[in-house]
Design a protein around this nucleic acid. Structure first.
Lengths: 205, 205
DNA sequence: AGATCAACCGACAGTGGTGTCGGTAACTGG
DNA sequence: CCAGTTACCGACACCACTGTCGGTTGATCT
């Protein structure tokens, strides 16, 4: 026989890039930046290791590229819930639901963007830190009127604490839900959103 | 001169072990298990790399040892708050305060034990997972009466969600506090504990 | 003081990672 | 059907890290 059963196929450069990025998301999320190897990413993308270097200058650049695109995806999906219609409890609930859905559908993206994994490289860490502060800022502005009603100024430390508790707490719920897939989205969303919303009043002392 | 300014000192084996462990806590927490190198730990302990192998069989065993001792320390410090006197809001507040204090005094230990860093080694990950479920269990039993008052059974999914939200949320606050050291413990504790406690009632639908 | 113990280290082998270079063969336009 | 582009790859150099072995020297006990 002249050929094996798997015919050697050539993809266009953008298509190959896309596949490599998709594989990189999984591997980076699963192992962390340092422990992830270019070889593992390449073979997960169904390609030799050198092909990866034909498309990306280095492991580092690939990582930054992946972070950027995944962050954009998350912003698009969850940010929509934040700026969506409704006010107060409804908007909070919608945002929680949007985040939980996103984390469910793209668990690797969630890990990459929010799980705190120090790389040692200040540049890389600062990129992640920038994403974090941007998310906190978005949630802060979403909750600003409700926080004010509770007696917390926008810049007050109490506001920052509430926002941080909310973001990390909901993320923890998302991680829990990932390991308990049988539970319905509505149930999880209800408990989390209600707990947080009911807790908001009477915070200042 | 015959000797340098730093005189070569020999420590007893337990003392040296202790110093190596202390250095390992910092390095493992800072870089993660995979990226941390034995050489970095050794030099942080003020000793050659081979000395480390005289005291620990491998990097892996050192890591497990460090995890165990740090987990014990956290259990002792925070667990005291959980089982402490008082019920309901007071007990929750005391636990939050205890955790925040612990995270403040031993940031590396907090990172090691609760920041989710996959190592790829199933054994190592399962140890961390066991710590996590133990913590969740402890918080669940602490909140059991209050959860029941809100209409949530101990084994219900709602309880698990609440506990997860609480643990990860308070941990997020601890991380935030670490980067804002000027804020008083009381203020942070008040906001977090009140938000969570006020949110507890009327959770079931 | 001298002998013994063990804390300490330099040097080595083995392994696995990143990034590079030249060549090969699959698509594509004429 | 032929030529040119380029997606693809094997092999290589280089480096960092883990774990080992023999020797050295500070501490301790008599």
């Amino acid at each position: 026989m002249a050929t094996t059963d798997t015919v050697r196929r050539r993809l266009s450069a953008p298509a190959r890039r896309q596949r490599i990025e998709a594989a990189a998301v999984e591997v980076f999320a699963g192992r962390g930046y340092d422990a992830a190897s270019v070889g593992e990413i390449a073979s997960a993308a169904g390609v030799s290791r050198t092909v990866l270097y034909d498309h990306f200058r280095s492991k580092r650049e690939l990582y930054l590229q992946v972070l950027d695109s995944q962050n954009a995806a998350m912003l698009a999906e969850v940010g929509a819930g934040i700026t969506g219609a409704g006010a107060g409890a409804d908007r909070l609930r919608a945002t929680v639901a949007a985040y939980l859905s996103f984390a469910r559908q793209r668990p690797a993206a969630r890990r990459l963007l929010v799980d705190p994994v120090p790389t040692g490289d200040p540049d890389l860490d600062s990129v992640l830190a920038a994403y974090r502060t941007a998310r906190a800022q978005a949630v802060t502005s979403m909750l600003a009127p409700d926080l004010a009603r509770s007696g917390l100024q926008a810049g007050a430390t109490g506001s920052a604490v509430v926002v941080e508790l909310l973001i990390t707490g909901v993320d923890g719920v998302a991680r829990w839900w990932q390991e308990h897939p049988d539970v319905a989205l509505d149930e999880v969303t209800d408990v989390a959103a209600r707990l947080l919303w009911n807790g908001l009043p009477r915070l200042s002392r």
